[in-house]
Amino acid sequence: MKPKEVINKWVELFNQGNAVEISELYHSDAINHQVNQDPVEGKKAIEEMFDREFKMAEMVCIPENIFEDGEWAILEWKDPLGLRGCGFFKVINGKIKFQRGYWDKLSFLRIHELPLPRE
């Protein structure tokens, strides 16, 4: 699959809340770095991250734009609650090797009425 096709499948599986199937889109040594959190390394750790997050809140990804440039796909997204963000995916041989995401974690926590960090 080309990068844009992988991201279309990623969105479909994300919206199903399926941690096992979405993790199958990643290389075994992939890195998922949501910049407001520590990077998650390895397919199994990525699956566990998605499993925790899907249990924490109902999340919906509505693509606004998906761009493709060589090995890279860029996803600009929103959700029904007003959160917006974007993700950059490096896709090699039809699987995600690296992902970096930008979104406002404080807004996410507030929208979903989750505990806010103390500091």
Rank of each mutant, 00 (worst) to 15 (best):
M49A: 11
F14M: 10
E76H: 13
Y26V: 04
S28K: 15
D38K: 13
K55I: 06
F108Y: 09
Q37N: 14
R52P: 11
D29A: 07
C61F: 14
I74D: 04
E5I: 04
V11W: 00
S107Q: 13
W77G: 05
L75W: 04
I46K: 00
D79M: 06
L75T: 03
K43C: 04
H112G: 03
I96T: 05
N18Q: 07
V20L: 12
M56H: 09
A19G: 07
P117Q: 02
E12R: 08
L13C: 06
P80F: 06
P3F: 06
K78T: 06
E12C: 07
N93M: 07
W103H: 04
E76I: 15
G94I: 01
K4S: 11
W103V: 04
F50Q: 05
F89K: 02
Y102T: 06
Q34M: 15
A19K: 03
E119L: 15
E113W: 06
P3G: 06
D79A: 08
P115D: 01
F67D: 12
V91G: 02
L116I: 07
R84F: 13
Y102R: 05
P63T: 03
Q34G: 15
E113S: 10
F50E: 06
N15D: 03
E68A: 03
F98I: 12
N18A: 08
R84Q: 14
K90C: 07
H33S: 09
